[in-house]
Design a protein around this nucleic acid. Structure first.
Lengths: 151, 151
DNA sequence: TTAAAATAGGATAAAATTATCCGAATTAAA
DNA sequence: TTTAATTCGGATAATTTTATCCTATTTTAA
């Protein structure tokens, strides 16, 4: 017995997405949030979350400010242009959509693995979703109570 | 930098699917295949593959025969009724479709995580695919040269 | 009956991912 | 200028997944 099969994201990505949403929400209100507040809100381990936030900062998805009254924020005007795929890319690199379902090095239309075509629509649906979902809508759904960051 | 994000399956599942296809192919020809032959064909580590095959045997997806001239096989008449989801279930357990995209314990229609609805179609497409793809078609595509088990 | 060929299964190791700790650097307020 | 609050970043630990090793057991053929 191993793990859950289709966990779309790594833990790192899960935390990164949730953190980004929370930072966006707070940025709308014009307040920076500390690592501590983020980890508490999204129920994630603080130090590990710090690493992920550093990744997001390096990739210009979010901004950070050191020192007292520091924390993380996102330029309000950019929130709607940050896509789920930007976050995922920043954390897990850009090999996102390239992987073969069965781990073959060479797997494409001309030399497909047994599930290549079967997975095609799933893969495309996923890609479309990641590239067409932005932080703003995710944040607004939290704000309106349509979705939740934690139990 | 962590791993590839959307790897649909664990390594264990990848090996399990590929092995099952190869065993099916061989079973059509009426010959049992040894662990060694399987691992060589699908380019997987032998001992690890053995563990996975044991799982598949325990879950009645494949049959094994100990001793000289032993090996693995699948009842010819059952090949078309073995679904991708059966293999995946045997190896990774039955928590397959339940997992929340963001790892929330509680995530459903009434209490959705931020990406719950976004993922809905992807998840459903995936489930449908796994439950409607059988070993026979995968094996036949290998046989006809329409797809490949290795590079 | 013996020998050789296989799978079964337990123990252990390696690698990757997730998580923690701690000191350095930075920043703002007092 | 000092202090407190923070992020940054390196080192390390824990956990999970993947991989290996070795012995026991089973089976067939000679």
């Amino acid at each position: 017995m191993y793990q859950i099969v289709i966990y779309m994201f790594s833990k790192a990505c899960e935390y990164g997405i949730k953190a980004s949403i929370f930072i966006a929400l707070s940025s709308y209100k014009g307040v920076r949030v500390s690592l501590k507040a983020i980890a508490k809100e999204i129920n994630s381990p603080e130090a590990f979350t710090a690493k992920i936030l550093q990744d997001l900062v390096r990739h210009d998805v979010i901004n950070s400010m050191k020192g007292a009254y520091g924390g993380f924020e996102i330029d309000k005007s950019l929130i709607s242009s940050i896509k789920l795929s930007d976050i995922v890319n920043a954390i897990d690199g850009d090999a996102i959509y390239s992987g073969c379902g069965l781990g073959l090095d060479t797997c494409d239309e001309d030399h497909p693995c047994p599930v290549h075509h079967k997975f095609k629509s799933v893969r495309e649906e996923l890609r479309f979703m990641l590239e067409n979902t932005n932080l703003e809508e995710l944040a607004l759904n939290i704000k309106s109570g349509a979705s939740f960051l934690k139990v």
